[in-house]
Design a binder for these strands. Structure first.
Length: 124
RNA sequence: UCAGGCGGCCGGGCGGCCGCUCCUGCAAGCGGAGAAAUCCCGCAGGAGAGGAAAGUCCGGGCUCCACGAAGGCAAGGCGCCGGGGAAAUCCCGGCGGGCCGGUUUAUCCGGUUCAGGGACAGCGCCGCAGAAAUCAGACCGCCGGGACUGCGCAAGCGCCCCGGCAAGGGUGAAACGGUGGGGUAAGAGCCCACCGCCCCGACCGCAAGGAAGGGGGCACGGCAAGCCCCGCCUGGAGCAAGGCCGAAUAGGGAUGCAACGUCCGUCCGCGGACAGGCGCGCCUUUGCGUUUCGCAUCCGGGUAGGCCGCACGAGGCGGCGCGCAAGCGCCGUCCCAGAUGAAUGGUCGCCACGCCGCUUUGCGCGGCGGACAGAACCCGGCUUACAGGCCGCCUGACGCU
């Protein structure tokens, strides 16, 4: 919910939101996945989230900024989009977000990746 | 071979690479997170969505709460018979009614469908149309008689009155049974034959019920899914149930001090009676339970923080036996998803299947497509959705013998 007002980048296959945690600038990259009822029934929504989760597993270690929370929102075309195109969408969005604040990306995120997370107060 | 109907079954297969959850075994450290409870971190092996997992419409298991007795009331549900089943408004088989079809027209056969107890307990309703809609009725009509200072040569016609009829017309979902014949002024179960209907009913069946035969000219309409009557059944909430472990705050209990709705007794601890509030579906009788104000100390409970519940079950598969079937019994064998930020996947090939195009017609090459849909405590049903395919039975058409 806090990521809602943060920076966001939209591509054909995915919408990515990013928020840096001020109190934990070198912490792990965290990610959450969501799909609204607008894109389909439970089977479609699950498939969309699985594809996004797999794509994030491949790309976040390369382009994610440490100490940041990401939210990946599935779109209507997430399920039908060819796999390489979906990867391109997410990679492009991640790079744009990394460049927007704090200069060029400071290399690959080194910290261990958390389980896909959404609730930032989990360790509160 | 094709088409249609009904029933049953399946719901693509194999393999790379990279991941997720759980289980088992081994390993592990003065390891990490947290106040704690508790959780996490390595390696190996194994397992991992459905026929509907769906809708959440019924029935249970399980869990907690409630539940003194008697009588009455209210509310809801169910409703042919037998069997199955833990149970159900479920399943199987039968009976009866309606509808459809068939022929060898009979106590026949097949299919389909029905919330299928009661319409002599009572009330109510039956719109429109129609003359009349339930103690029913006479518009047109048919027949007989009479009057006429109407017409006509006449037979007769017209009009009015009295009486008879319920066959024909017309209305309707339904009009005091249908067809044919006799009969009559015209008619009518008025009489007769056949069909239908009602009553009794040998005998058959566990039963619902069936029924030979006999009797009766024949009336007794429908709706109970309008109220109702009869019979039977019925507490509530749900795994966010519920249990355990555990911070803070508020609230709770015990002890001490102050204080006690009224009255009585008192060994001053308290006990008894009455009154009121609350609870037991409602009411009555009766009977219970509980309760009647502030400060300090201790205790306990408790919060979506965690763990258990949480997967061996009305269980799956195979065989044999019983039964028309639903299903049941015995034996053998197997352990078969457990997420919760919600795992069971992502991606790439090959094969099979369907369609389209090219086609030197070799099933060779290329392209596209694969439904409905995701366990959430667990079972049994019902209902709804569904690409494609397989099997069985029935019906029809064509071909062959």
């Amino acid at each position: 919910m806090r990521a809602r007002d943060a920076d966001s980048q939209a591509r054909a296959g995915v919408v990515v939101q990013k928020r840096e945690r001020a109190d934990d600038p070198e912490g792990p990259v965290r990610a959450g996945f969501t799909a609204t009822k607008k894109i389909g029934n439970a089977v479609i929504r699950n498939r969309a989230k699985r594809r996004l989760r797999e794509a994030a597993r491949l790309l976040l270690p390369l382009h994610g900024r440490p100490g940041s929370d990401y939210v990946f929102i599935a779109r209507a075309r997430t399920v039908s989009r060819p796999w390489p195109a979906l990867l391109d969408d997410m990679e492009s969005a991640l790079i744009s977000l990394a460049r927007r604040k704090g200069g060029p990306a400071s290399g690959p995120a080194h910290a261990r990746r958390h389980r896909p997370d959404k609730d930032e107060t989990a360790h509160g």
